[in-house]
C-alpha cells in the first residue's frame, strides 16, 4: 500500500505544483492518475521515485515514509519508475540497458544473470535484439525494453509515466497486456496517463488530479462512465471546481 498524505512539491523557486495531494494505492492494484496538462500527475510519480523531494507531506510505503529518500534507496525498497522520456540509454545495447535495471544490486551477479534470463524469456524482443544498440529501436520496442528493465529488481511497485506516449494502437494493446500480466504477479502499478480511456481501461482505480489537488477518486470503470470527465479533459473544469 502506498499512501500520499498532504503531499506538497514543486520545482526550484517556482510555486507548488502539488498542493496537498491525498490518496492511497491499494496493494496489488492498478491505479491510474488522470487529469489535464499541468495538474501535477508526473510530479506525483517523481516525488514517489525520489527524483523530486517533497516540500511537505508524506509518502508512506506500508508504514515507512519514503518521501525525500534518494532514488537508489527507494529502488532498494522495491519501487521502480519507468520514465516518460529518455528512459533508455541509446549508446548501450538492449542487454546492457536491461541489466542496468539491477544497478543498485550490481554485486549480486548470479541473481542478476538468472533474472535477466527470466526476463528475456518473458519478452522475446530482449533476446532477439540483445546485442543491438537501443538507439536503433522503435518507440514501442523502447517501451518494452524499459518495461523489462524495470522488472530486473523484482519490484513490488511499478510507476509508469505516460506509458502510451508515442505508441501506435497495436503497441498500446501489447503494453496493456504486459501491465496486466505484471499486476497478476502481485505487483502494484501506479500509472499516469494522458490517454484517459487507455489508462482507466487497464486500471482498477482512478484518481483525478487537477491544479495539484485530488479532485476525485473512485473505481476506474465509474470514472470512465462519469460525464464530468468529458468536461475536464475536453476543456473547462468540472462542476465541483467552477466558481
Amino acid at each position: 500500500m502506498i499512501t500520499f498524505k498532504g503531499l506538497v512539491a514543486g520545482y526550484g523557486r517556482a510555486g507548488d505544483i502539488l498542493r496537498g495531494v491525498d490518496f492511497a494505492v491499494a496493494e496489488g492494484s492498478i491505479t491510474c492518475i488522470v487529469g489535464p496538462n499541468g495538474a501535477g500527475k508526473s510530479t506525483v510519480l517523481k516525488t514517489c521515485s525520489g527524483l523530486l523531494r517533497p516540500r511537505k507531506g508524506q509518502i508512506l510505503l506500508g508504514s515507512q515514509d519514503i518521501g525525500g529518500l534518494t532514488p537508489a534507496a527507494i529502488l532498494r525498497l522495491g519501487v521502480v519508475q519507468v520514465p516518460q522520456h529518455h528512459g533508455l540509454f541509446p549508446t548501450l545495447t538492449v542487454r546492457e540497458n536491461v541489466q542496468l535495471g539491477a544497478y543498485v544490486n550490481r554485486r549480486q551477479r548470479e541473481r542478476n544473470r538468472a533474472r535477466y534470463e527470466e526476463i528475456a524469456q518473458i519478452f522475446p524482443l530482449i533476446a532477439e535484439r540483445a546485442n543491438d544498440r537501443a538507439a536503433s529501436l522503435s518507440g514501442g520496442q523502447r517501451r518494452t525494453v524499459e518495461f523489462a528493465r524495470a522488472l530486473m529488481l523484482n519490484p513490488g511497485v511499478v510507476l509508469l509515466d505516460e506509458p502510451s506516449l508515442g505508441l501506435d494502437p497495436k503497441a498500446c494493446r501489447q503494453l496493456a497486456s504486459s501491465v496486466k500480466a505484471l499486476n497478476q504477479q502481485g505487483v502494484t502499478v501506479l500509472i499516469v496517463e494522458q490517454n484517459v480511456r487507455f489508462g482507466l481501461s487497464m486500471a482498477d482505480n482512478g484518481v483525478v488530479l487537477e491544479g495539484g489537488r485530488v479532485l476525485h477518486t473512485s473505481g476506474a470503470a465509474e470514472l470512465l462512465a462519469d460525464p464530468d470527465m468529458g468536461a475536464l479533459f475536453f476543456g473547462g473544469t468540472t462542476r465541483e471546481t467552477q466558481p
Binding site: S49, P71, A72, H85, L88, F89, L92, Y103
Partner: peptide, 14 residues
C-alpha cells in the same frame, strides 16, 4: 554512459 544519455533516466535506476 547512462548518465551521459539521460540524467533522470540514470537516477531512476539508482
Amino acid at each position: 554512459q547512462a548518465a551521459a544519455s539521460s540524467s533522470d533516466g540514470a537516477r531512476l535506476i539508482g
